[in-house]
Design a protein around this nucleic acid. Structure first.
Length: 486
RNA sequence: GGUCGAGUGGCCGAGAGGCUUAGGCACAGCUCUGCAAAAGCUGCUACAGCGGUUCGAAUCCGCUCUCGACCUCCA
């Protein structure tokens, strides 16, 4: 079944019905991380949002090719178009080869994504692996007259491009104002126009990462890699291009310009932008130094955190807000999500134990339809979560025996949980994985049950309180005793 | 300064002209229970301010205030 999905397109600034160019195939490109340092939680939010979108598109019957790049060259500090890029700078700092930096942080990024249970993209191309494609693209842009060379460095000619195309289509800014503003920012380089940006940058002899080109030794500008790689793997026109909102004004604006100057049409039909994660209302960013690293969050080793939060808790927390809203990061909010997530997962683990009864009193009215409708409405995950808590309530009442469910309705419930908790949201139960612990606790619980039957409450309380002190909470019910970690 | 967006109950956070009690967390009461926890039920119940449009506005329009993002590297 192919769903009719509406998504918010930054190009038009409104929700549109999603109509892929070649249904059921969908091409989606997302700007990935620049691997010169650890990814922080804000970066993760974007990738988890697109993981959700990727999963839902697949669930909806589309054949998705999801391309997410690794930027491992050419990303300069500041906008000077000169000097070392971020990798070389970091390499000098850590006394490593630039490619050791790239390798280290690429592996770290993958580890984090795995902990979040995010699916790997279909293709994960690197900038250094596509130097030739980038050079070819620059040659075409030059041949089309939208770029010029100054002493081995190639610049994109924004003013000339603007005469034929709309440079500010993504941000709706006024080009004259931009020109007037940027003029005052100064800059010592050789660009003709202040908005011009480098496609290829001439290397100095000591530049660590450099390649041969028709214009001499050099390295690519930051923006060109995404244009070249998206065209290579998805074609010159594809369906969805995504990334963080912070990329729209500069990176994506320049990407569109390059692609249009090369192929003469818009690269992507839909541009999607995820909003920022904030701390105390201010954007989490590397340069502000207010970024949380995933490791710090999981362990709680951070001045602003009272305790650690598991990857699934964090992911659930993120999905409780819409991807286009800012989300503020705080202990209180995380603790609330943690408790909610535990309640949900507890119900999920109870689901296999439910017994169908012919005289069912429960109707699963449109829960799944509500979830589908919510996701079809620009991937509204918070509404899906509200529906999942309705399912949680139903599961608990059936488990407690205060309601009965028939086989057909129980089946619907199981499908709902399987589809949305696991398949679309990619959540997983983090507690039931330790089989040894399970077996030990089963034994302890059996011993306690015996003590209780003998009304030896001193022993049974000693067991319960003892376990509680090491973080394991026992929960008695008519059906027996279950446990959870605090 | 320019562009864009946001202000929802104790907190997080959806919704977007009437008929969501959104949902979660917290809090209170009750039920269950040897105790505890869990679970269920019930309650608390809001839309920054001022005007306007409308039979009806948190939702549309105008103004005011506050906050944020982008415009310079960042998902």
């Amino acid at each position: 079944m192919i769903h009719q999905i509406q998504l918010y397109n930054t190009l038009t600034r409104k929700k549109e019905i999603f109509e892929p160019l070649n249904a059921p195939h969908v091409g989606m490109y997302v700007c990935g991380p620049t691997v010169y340092s650890d990814v922080h939680l804000g970066n993760c939010r974007t990738f988890l949002s697109f993981d959700l979108i990727f999963r839902y598109l697949k669930y909806s019957g589309f054949k998705v090719r999801y391309v997410r790049n690794i930027t491992d060259a050419g990303h300069l500090e500041g906008d000077r178009d000169e000097g070392d890029d971020k990798f070389a700078k970091r390499a000098k700092l850590e006394q490593l080869e630039p490619m050791e930096i790239v390798q280290k942080y690429t592996l770290g990024f993958h580890d984090v994504m795995r902990m979040f249970n995010a699916l790997p993209p279909s293709i994960e191309p690197t900038a250094t692996g596509h130097i030739i494609e980038q050079i070819e693209m620059i040659k075409t842009i030059m041949a089309n007259g939208y770029a010029y060379e100054v002493d081995g460095t190639i610049y994109f000619d924004v003013e000339k491009y603007s005469a034929a195309y709309n440079y500010t289509i993504l941000t709706n800014r006024n080009l004259e104002d931009m020109l007037a503003n940027t003029r005052e920012l100064g800059g010592q380089d050789d660009k003709h126009g202040r908005l011009d940006f480098a496609l290829w940058i001439k290397a100095k002899p000591e530049t660590l990462m450099q390649w041969a080109s028709p214009w001499g030794m050099g390295f690519p500008g930051w923006h060109i890699e995404c244009s070249a790689m998206s065209a290579k793997y998805l074609g010159q026109e594809f369906d969805i291009h995504g990334g963080g909102m912070d990329l729209a004004a500069t990176h994506h604006t320049n990407e569109i310009a390059q692609s249009e100057a090369c192929s003469r049409h818009q690269p992507a039909k839909y541009w999607m932008h995820t909003n920022m994660l904030t701390v105390n209302g201010t954007r989490m960013s590397k340069s502000k130094g207010n970024g949380f690293l995933p490791g710090e969050l999981f362990t709680g080793n951070h001045p602003l955190l009272n305790k650690g939060y598991s990857p699934m808790t964090v992911k659930f927390f993120m999905f409780q807000a819409h991807y286009r809203s800012t989300l503020d990061f705080s202990n209180e909010a995380l603790e609330a999500s943690e408790k909610g997530f535990k309640r949900l997962m507890n119900a999920v683990s109870l689901l296999p134990k439910l017994v169908a009864n012919e005289e069912g009193t429960i109707q699963i009215d449109g829960l799944k339809e509500n979830c589908i409708n919510a996701m079809n409405d620009d991937f509204n995950s918070p509404v899906v979560i509200a529906e999942l808590f309705e399912a949680t309530r139903i599961i608990n009442t059936v488990y407690d025996g205060t309601a009965k469910i028939n086989a057909a309705e129980l089946d619907k419930l199981k499908t709902l949980v399987n589809d949305f908790v696991f398949e679309v949201f990619g959540l997983k139960d983090e507690e039931s994985s330790n089989t040894e612990l399970n077996e030990v606790l089963d034994m302890v619980i059996a011993l306690r049950k015996e003590a209780k039957e003998n009304k030896d409450y001193a022993i049974s309380d000693q067991i319960r309180i003892g376990l509680q002190n090491i973080g394991i909470q026992l929960k008695d019910s008519k059906e027996g005793t279950t446990w959870s970690k605090n």
